[in-house]
Design a protein around this nucleic acid. Sequence first.
RNA 1: GGCCCCGUGGCGCAAUUGAAUAGCGCAUCAGAUUUCGGCUCUGAGGGUUACAGGUUUGAAUCCUGUCGGGGUCACCA
Length: 631
Amino acid sequence: MEQEIKKIVFEKAIEIFGQIIPEKIIQTQKTRGDVKGDLTLVLFPIVGMLKSSPQEIGNKIGDFLVSNTQWIDSYEVAGGFLNLVASQEYWLNRLKEINAEAEYGFAQPNSKIPMMVEYSSPNTNKPLHLGHLRNIFLGHAVAEILKANGHEVIKTQIINDRGIHICKSMLAWERFSPENDKGEKETPSNTGLKGDKLVGKYYVEFDKNFVREAKEIIAKWEDSEFDGFENEVVLEYQKLHALKEGKDEKTIKGLDAKILDLAKNQTGLLRDAKEMLVKWEARDPQTYLLWNTMNGWVYEGFESTYKMMGVEFDKVYYESDTFILGKDLVMEGLEKDIFYQKEDGSIWVDLTADGLDEKLLLRSDGTAVYMTQDMGTAKDRFADFPNLGGMIYTVGNEQDYHFKVLFLILQKLGFAWANNCHHLSYGMVDLPSGKMKSREGTVVDADDLMAEVVQKAKEATLDRGHIADMSENEVDTLCNLIGMGGLKYYLLKVDPKKRMLFDPAESIELNGNTGPFIQYAYARIQSLLRKGEVSSLSQELVFSDVEIELLKKLNDAPKALEEAAQQLAPSLIANYLFELVKAFNHFYQNVTIFGEEVEDLKNMRLVLSDNVGKVIKSYFNLLGIQVPSKM
RNA sequence: GGCCCCGUGGCGCAAUUGAAUAGCGCAUCAGAUUUCGGCUCUGAGGGUUACAGGUUUGAAUCCUGUCGGGGUCACCA
């Protein structure tokens, strides 16, 4: 209705005002809840232009609409606002249209440009945690929302399967894994550990030994034993140490951290890890075998985690493939003088003219860094899918700067598609106790958390009815659906851009603005539909206020989806559904359906309920959430 | 310190991107079921939108400054 009204006012401006007005000053908004009306025109811009009073302008528009369209019954001018009241015919017509659509709210499939959405993109050196859950649910939902909005969508991830961090796990496993009586080191099969968990364990193991070795070095330095260290390092240490003199606690802490970093760089462990990386890039067979084996374990572990999450990918990229392309790009840029080389052989890009810094693109030992491979990956993707109209990177906001730099570099290299790259930057997930910190062991493991919410859902469901005639299997499926639905909804209902708080107790709540609350409404509707048949709508119906309120919410569905797609914000879908369900519950509480004697009214209420149910189901699916027919 | 992001009832979040009296959930208090699923619904209390200026017919939203929180400034990813 909004679009039609705008169009009429614009096109008939001469008839209404006696002159043409610009389209953009015709502004509409939702009518306030406590005011009578279904659509509101904001009159201030028009008033300003025509130098007339709001009352006069409002009356002109209102009179015209009432007498020239069949959808507007009456109007009222309040201040600078024109509140329009839609007619019963309008609402009946809308309900019929909505009811007739196969996938109400969705756009024509593949009617818009193809988009690639990247999410998850884990490192293969540790298991997934709560932060990944937000990332993955978010990216997956955005992909589904874009698809529903008419885009062809390719879901992808980049597997961060190479780099110094991977070598750390490999080295630690090789060096520190105990052997069993058969002389085997630890593997998923001989320990029963999930592959990603096992590898993660050795990453931690590396860090422990790494820090220990560094501290031993510092102890030596404190005793003035500097044999075997480079002069530069010794001087740097002495400088930092001297600075500590007489400083406050905070400054000393900072200096100690710097000293620790300095010492870390002197450890044999790091040197060996670096050597391993060089060997890996040179495709040393033994290193490659170890790498393949350990990555294989991790992939198996991830596979089961993804399955539990209910997400999938259309195309997977590996950095072990794309970093070569990245290196080529770096060389290309060097030849074109877009990049430059320092004396030690390292290659950099100077972005100071763009208000950014200098950025390393290739180490002096010739190995690739994060930026190198991201350049290669981007090029690879647009080569694979030349029609891509957009590339969305779902990555946390701690990498805002990284993506700014990446996109700028790609532009400088002359790729036209660089402008279609977009960083979907989301906020960190905090716990009530503060930040998640691996060193303090406060990281919430993804597998553990999912198992926990399902368990809680089970406890809550078991002592309620409606599952008596279900098999054990069905009950498990149901609890899975409720627990995961609650968790996904909890993580998705907040604006992605914002940092959010994860409260474990609240995430498994069933009341209020939660996934299960919405699932419950769906189950109720299914129960209604089992009791009564839906037939076609009568031509003569009069809606009551609660029915119109519900119909209005139902009417908002396409707009909610469109905005969610445009803003890449699944939270808008979540919030919309919550509003829809509140309106439904209000309706449900205020009218009787099977107690209604007028057959046409009873049928209309069933049709209304049916359509609410359809939207809940299809929109919840966009968020990756299933709905139960009983719960 | 430079750059970037964020401050909304006790807590967690909204606000159509500049519009009416800033909404909702939790929590608190008071109610509702001879009725289709009470994981529901109705009502009440609770706010100077961190603070101070400015722009505008109109500011939580835009600009400037202050305070507070976070991120980032690696030959880590």
